Amino acid sequence: EAKQAFKELLKEKRVPSNASWEQAMKMIINDPRYSALAKLSEKKQAFNAY
């Protein structure tokens, strides 16, 4: 599932759970899995759940 892949990406890149969305994006934007969720709102939702 795309959300699961996105959460795994956050874990693998060691994005701190208290990081802001902007900080997290800088760490993950170059990974192909960043595109797993098409909409930015879906990415933010998955990030907030993380």
Results as ranks from 00 to 15, higher is better:
30 N>C: 05
7 K>F: 14
24 A>K: 00
13 K>W: 04
8 E>P: 00
30 N>S: 14
14 R>S: 09
12 E>V: 03
6 F>I: 04
7 K>I: 15
26 K>E: 13
1 E>G: 08
49 A>E: 15
18 N>Q: 10
24 A>N: 01
42 E>G: 03
35 S>N: 12
21 W>M: 05
42 E>W: 03
15 V>H: 01
34 Y>H: 01
27 M>Y: 10
24 A>M: 04
12 E>H: 08
36 A>Q: 11
38 A>W: 03
37 L>M: 07
32 P>M: 01
27 M>A: 12
45 Q>K: 10
23 Q>S: 11
29 I>S: 15
45 Q>F: 07
29 I>N: 15
20 S>W: 01
6 F>M: 01
15 V>Q: 04
9 L>W: 01
44 K>N: 12
9 L>A: 09
22 E>Y: 01
6 F>C: 00
15 V>A: 00
15 V>L: 04
21 W>V: 07
12 E>K: 01
25 M>K: 14
8 E>I: 05
46 A>I: 11
25 M>G: 08
2 A>N: 14
43 K>R: 11
12 E>Q: 06
44 K>Q: 13
47 F>Q: 07
25 M>C: 13
20 S>K: 08
4 Q>N: 01
47 F>M: 03
12 E>D: 11
35 S>R: 12
42 E>S: 06
8 E>L: 08
43 K>G: 04
21 W>T: 07
13 K>L: 05
41 S>H: 04
19 A>Q: 05
31 D>S: 01
45 Q>E: 15
45 Q>A: 12
7 K>A: 12
11 K>Y: 10
34 Y>K: 07
38 A>C: 10
18 N>P: 01
26 K>R: 13
22 E>L: 05
25 M>Q: 15
40 L>A: 11
31 D>K: 00
40 L>G: 06
21 W>P: 08
38 A>S: 14
48 N>E: 15
41 S>K: 06
47 F>G: 06
21 W>I: 03
24 A>T: 08
8 E>H: 05
38 A>M: 08
3 K>M: 15
37 L>G: 07
34 Y>R: 06
30 N>L: 08
42 E>H: 10
20 S>H: 05
39 K>I: 04
20 S>P: 07
5 A>Y: 04
42 E>K: 02
6 F>Y: 02
43 K>I: 00
46 A>V: 15
35 S>I: 07
26 K>W: 01
35 S>E: 15
41 S>R: 07
10 L>M: 08
49 A>V: 08
43 K>P: 10
4 Q>D: 00
46 A>K: 02
17 S>K: 14
22 E>W: 04
23 Q>D: 11
25 M>S: 13
30 N>Y: 10
42 E>Y: 00
6 F>S: 08
18 N>D: 14
44 K>V: 13
42 E>A: 06
40 L>H: 11
42 E>P: 01
17 S>C: 14
47 F>W: 12
37 L>D: 10
37 L>P: 10
14 R>T: 04
11 K>P: 00
37 L>C: 08
6 F>R: 03
2 A>K: 12
48 N>A: 10
49 A>S: 14
3 K>P: 05
12 E>P: 00
7 K>L: 15
22 E>H: 10
46 A>W: 06
4 Q>T: 14
25 M>L: 12
16 P>D: 07
8 E>N: 05
16 P>Y: 01
27 M>F: 07
40 L>P: 08
1 E>V: 00
38 A>G: 14
9 L>H: 03
24 A>S: 05
38 A>F: 00
32 P>W: 02
12 E>I: 00
17 S>D: 11
14 R>M: 13
27 M>H: 11
10 L>Y: 01
32 P>Y: 00
40 L>R: 04
34 Y>N: 03
43 K>M: 11
5 A>S: 11
29 I>V: 15
44 K>W: 03
39 K>M: 09
1 E>R: 06
1 E>D: 08
39 K>E: 13
36 A>R: 11
17 S>V: 15
13 K>T: 07
15 V>W: 01
17 S>F: 15
2 A>R: 10
6 F>E: 06
13 K>Y: 11
31 D>H: 08
47 F>V: 03
46 A>M: 12
43 K>C: 02
7 K>H: 14
8 E>K: 05
28 I>H: 12
20 S>Y: 01
40 L>Q: 13
46 A>D: 04
50 Y>C: 06
3 K>V: 13
2 A>T: 02
40 L>W: 07
44 K>M: 10
14 R>E: 10
46 A>Y: 01
35 S>C: 09
14 R>Y: 00
13 K>C: 02
16 P>A: 09
24 A>P: 03
31 D>L: 02
28 I>M: 02
4 Q>M: 11
49 A>D: 15
40 L>C: 05
38 A>L: 09
17 S>Y: 14
21 W>H: 03
23 Q>V: 12
30 N>M: 12
12 E>F: 00
23 Q>A: 10
28 I>A: 05
11 K>L: 15
43 K>V: 06
30 N>I: 00
26 K>T: 13
24 A>C: 10
22 E>V: 07
13 K>N: 01
48 N>R: 12
25 M>F: 04
30 N>P: 10
20 S>A: 05
19 A>V: 11
43 K>D: 03
6 F>W: 01
14 R>P: 02
18 N>I: 03
40 L>F: 09
14 R>Q: 14
27 M>G: 05
4 Q>A: 11
8 E>D: 04
39 K>V: 09
14 R>K: 14
19 A>P: 03
26 K>G: 14
45 Q>P: 03
21 W>A: 04
3 K>N: 09
49 A>T: 12
32 P>A: 09
5 A>E: 12
42 E>L: 04
1 E>P: 06
10 L>T: 03
35 S>A: 14
39 K>F: 06
24 A>H: 00
13 K>M: 08
25 M>E: 15
37 L>Q: 07
36 A>V: 11
2 A>E: 14
41 S>I: 01
38 A>R: 12
13 K>G: 03
45 Q>I: 14
36 A>S: 13
5 A>P: 03
2 A>S: 06
24 A>G: 07
9 L>P: 02
13 K>E: 00
9 L>V: 05
25 M>I: 12
30 N>E: 12
41 S>Y: 03
24 A>D: 05
31 D>C: 00
22 E>I: 06
9 L>C: 06
6 F>P: 02
29 I>L: 11
45 Q>M: 09
15 V>F: 00
12 E>A: 05
34 Y>M: 01
47 F>I: 13
16 P>I: 03
11 K>D: 12
41 S>E: 15
27 M>K: 05
32 P>D: 10
44 K>L: 13
35 S>K: 12
15 V>Y: 01
21 W>L: 03
26 K>A: 11
46 A>H: 02
32 P>V: 07
28 I>R: 05
30 N>T: 12
19 A>D: 01
18 N>G: 11
5 A>F: 04
4 Q>F: 00
2 A>V: 03
44 K>S: 03
32 P>Q: 12
7 K>T: 15
28 I>E: 05
